[in-house]
Amino acid sequence: MSAIITKPRLTTSAMIASIAGEGQRTVNAPFGHALIAEAARRPNIVGMTADLSKYTDLHIFANEHPNRFFQMGMAEQLLMGAAGGMAKEGLMPFATTYAVFATRRAYDFIHQVIAEEHLNVKICAALPGLTTGYGPSHQATEDIAMMRGIPGLTIVDPCDALDTQQAVAAIAAHDGPVYMRLLRGKVPLVLDEYDYKFELGKAKLLRDGKDVLIISSGIMTMRALEAMHALADGSAEVAVLHVPTIKPLDEATIIAQCSHPGRLVVVAENHSIVGGLGEAVATTLMRAGVHPAFRQIALPDEFLAAGALPTLHDRYGISTSSIVATIKRWLA
Rank of each mutant, 00 (worst) to 15 (best):
A17D: 08
L191K: 03
L191R: 04
G32M: 01
V121Q: 10
G289Q: 06
K122R: 14
A224N: 10
F70D: 12
D57M: 05
G218K: 03
I254Y: 03
V274W: 07
A280W: 04
D211G: 02
V46T: 09
A40K: 14
L200V: 01
A37F: 00
A87T: 09
K122D: 02
I110S: 07
P30M: 01
T56A: 04
D192E: 15
A145P: 12
A170W: 00
L127M: 10
A298N: 09
A203Q: 02
I318Q: 10
D233R: 00
A239C: 08
A256L: 06
P310D: 00
D163A: 06
I254C: 08
G234A: 07
A172V: 04
R41E: 11
C124F: 07
K7R: 13
F303M: 13
A293G: 13
A40L: 11
R263A: 03
R9C: 02
L200I: 04
E38Q: 11
F94W: 04
G278R: 08
V266D: 14
T11R: 07
T131L: 03
C159I: 06
I171N: 01
H65Q: 05
E199N: 08
Y107I: 14
V274F: 09
I318A: 07
A170Q: 01
A14E: 06
T132M: 01
R68D: 15
K7D: 13
H242Q: 06
Y107P: 13
A236E: 15
M72S: 09
G21Q: 11
E64I: 00
P8A: 12
L299H: 13
H271Y: 04
N63T: 13
A306W: 01
E116K: 04
D160T: 10
R9G: 00
A288P: 08
E64V: 04
H271R: 09
A82N: 10
M74V: 15
Q257I: 02
A29S: 12
V281P: 14
L182V: 12
V156A: 01
M220F: 02
H291T: 14
L241A: 03
M86L: 15
V281Y: 07
M1T: 14
I215W: 09
D163S: 08
M220Q: 11
H271F: 06
Q71H: 08
S259L: 01
I123V: 15
R148N: 12
